[in-house]
Design a protein around this nucleic acid. Structure first.
Length: 580
RNA sequence: CGGGAUGUGGCUCAGUCUGGUAGAGCGCUGCGUUCGGGACGCAGAGACCGGAGGUUCAAAUCCUCUCAUCCCGACCA
């Protein structure tokens, strides 16, 4: 492509609306433009990068035996009512009515549609397993879209759905997708990790998230420092190594005693007042879980993991109790809740609290706390369970080594759905014995547009983006410094034709611009390879080749250029851990 | 939805407090010079100052309402 006839509107300055680096660079490199909050137009370069990602995903999905289809983004409300998600999905689901007043929504995901499609066609075990996927625009009316392509409302997603006749088959499908994802992310040239994850609103039995590692990522991942072990999990999923014990009867524990603690609403204030450590007291947190009051206890220096509590309760939604409810249940202002005499039936405690007795807790009374509380003797805890957020330096739940934290961007998610949707929508087949069985499903998503943003978040420097060659909108740029020097222009033209003929996706900067402008644009956009041809180089029979990532420059001979270039190109790809 | 901020040529911003003829830099057009890391000179085009209402002789500026965007908290590819 000749740049003089192409469309890459680069910006010299960061747009005011962009905060994170990928958003700034995508805008500045002329790859995207915002239409409205969380909704972007893809300019030629952005579209090209997205397509390169999509092509790799398509290849890996096909290789794994999945079959591409394309489903509508406008979906009838009836199907969502059938699974109950019309009511449960929340405001993220953009709903509207057609001229007849019928309910519709813009698809945030396609379980309902695919299940409807398959139940109408698939009748026999002979047709299973089946794995269908699409690459398609999704719409989620996010509460707060931000960070450009990282969290848009409209975005491109690859979503696959597997249908199997039994659990074993479903697990095999799941493994197949897991492997396909691993292969795809490797080809994309991204540093990533597959981590255990909570299955969230879509539901299901177990799931993994694929995280692109970047310091600017929104998610925190707990990773075992023992590489052999390989345990990695999303913070909200990461199990804490079991530390429970025998609570005993409390016979040796002195009787609970009330002390006045005026004005101590927080753990810090209380500890300062009583001159004790946060690890010796119990925090009592009050929630409303699907409308029902629940209390959760964790040690004073720990943080409650709401996802673990929600899963323990099997609840759909949990939220912190408001001040009014806290007063009602404790008879005290916020900050003095405790398990003893609490007007909440269901009390759950973190396993760790089973290890010790004689805790300091709130007294359910203004300006007072209790000392020497024994959770078995003085209160009725329904269950001790893993409820707290894992901390850095905690033990790995799998091998006991240290846990470290790292940041990541979620770009893929694999779920085993089980029969959640097939049951709700009656997707059945006849087995070998002519008996009706529910299909076992799995679903597998990859944020295609988000990958482009994540690639930049992971790879950039002060001059701009640095694209892995497999994703880059163009693999290489020829920068001609010819100006009016016809010899240089002719040679650059010739090289361009040659590279194109060789099948290389190359952009040729033939603009009548000063060298600095061309260099800066090329660095900003982040083509992995730059080929610079100037008057001096031509005279000496060489062209300068720059590896954008390492910054290394080498001189390639013009005589025998193809071979020299091919060898150098291979080296650049290898620098990314990739094979051209 | 709560909390904070911002809306002024295509872009980044000044001007608003203290009302009085709309500015700068970049970009864009033309001509000339320049040409290996965002050149320079000259000449130009381009803005109902987010919108509506109000106060005033006079509003980008003060008041009221509204819309949009961005940032911090609960969701997710």
């Amino acid at each position: 492509m000749r740049l003089s006839r192409y469309y890459i509107p680069t910006l010299k300055e960061d747009p005011a609306e962009a905060e994170v680096i990928s958003h700034k660079l995508l805008m500045r490199a002329g790859m995207i433009r915002k239409l409205t909050s969380g909704i972007y137009a893809y300019l030629p370069l952005g579209h090209k990068a997205v397509n390169k990602v999509a092509a790799i995903l398509r290849e890996e999905m096909n290789r794994a035996g999945a079959i591409e289809i394309f489903m509508p983004s406008v979906q009838p409300g009836d199907l969502w009512k059938e699974t109950g998600r019309w009511d449960f999905y929340g405001k993220e689901l953009l709903r509207f009515k057609d001229r007849h007043g019928r309910d519709y929504c813009l698809g945030p995901t396609h379980e309902e549609i695919i299940t409807d499609l398959v139940r109408g066609e698939v009748r026999s075990y002979k047709q299973l397993p089946l794995n269908l996927y699409q690459i398609q625009t999704k719409f989620r009316d996010e509460i707060r879209p931000r960070f450009g392509l990282m969290r848009g409302r409209e975005f491109l997603m690859k979503d696959a759905y597997s249908f199997d006749k039994d659990e074993a088959g479903a697990e095999e499908s799941y493994r197949g997708m897991y492997q396909a994802y691993t292969a795809a992310f490797e080809r994309l040239g991204l540093k990533f990790r597959a981590v255990q994850a909570d299955s969230g609103a879509i539901g299901g039995d177990f799931s993994h998230e694929f995280m692109v590692l970047a310091d600017t990522g929104e998610d925190t991942i707990a990773v075992c420092e023992d590489r052999e072990c390989g345990y990695a999990a999303n913070l909200e999923k990461a199990a804490v190594a079991f530390v429970g014990g025998d609570l005993g009867t409390g016979a040796e524990c002195p009787a609970a005693e009330e002390v006045a603690t005026p004005g101590t609403h927080t753990v810090e204030e209380l500890c300062a007042f009583l001159k004790i450590e946060p690890s010796t007291l119990v925090k009592t947190l009050l929630f409303v879980a699907d409308g029902e009051p629940v209390a959760a206890l964790v040690r004073g220096d720990r943080e409650l993991n709401e996802v673990k509590l929600r899963n323990l309760l099997g609840a759909n939604e949990i939220e912190m109790a408001d001040e009014k409810r806290v007063r009602e249940w404790t008879g005290a202002p916020v900050g003095f809740a405790g398990p003893v005499g609490l007007k909440v039936e269901r009390i759950f405690a973190d396993s760790e609290l089973e290890l010790d007795q004689g805790w300091t807790t709130g007294a359910n009374k203004g300006d007072a706390h209790l000392l020497n509380v024994h959770l078995g003797r003085d209160s009725k805890v329904e269950k001790f369970a893993d409820l707290r957020v894992i901390e850095e330096s905690d033990s790995c739940p799998k091998c006991g080594a240290r846990i470290g934290f790292t940041k990541g961007i979620e770009v893929g998610h694999v779920f085993k759905l089980g029969t959640k949707y097939s049951k709700a929508m009656d997707a059945k087949y006849l087995d070998e014995n002519g008996k009706e069985q529910l299909m076992i499903m799995g679903c597998y998503g990859i944020g295609v547009s988000r990958i482009v943003a994540a690639a930049i978040e992971q790879n950039n420097d002060e001059n701009g983006a640095i694209f892995p060659p497999s994703i880059a909108p163009f693999e290489a740029a020829i920068i001609s410094l010819g100006g009016k020097d016809e010899a240089v222009v002719n040679k650059a033209d010739e090289l361009y034709e040659e590279l194109c003929a060789g099948g290389l996706d190359v952009i040729y900067d033939d603009r009548n611009e000063r060298p600095g402008v061309k260099f800066n644009d090329a660095d900003l956009i982040g083509y992995p390879m730059q080929l610079v041809l100037g008057g001096k180089g031509l005279k000496n029979g060489i062209i300068e080749a720059k590896d954008r990532r390492s910054g290394e420059r080498v001189e390639l001979p013009l005589d025998g250029f193809s071979e020299a270039f091919a060898a150098w190109r291979k080296g650049v790809w290898q620098g990314w851990g990739l094979e051209g």
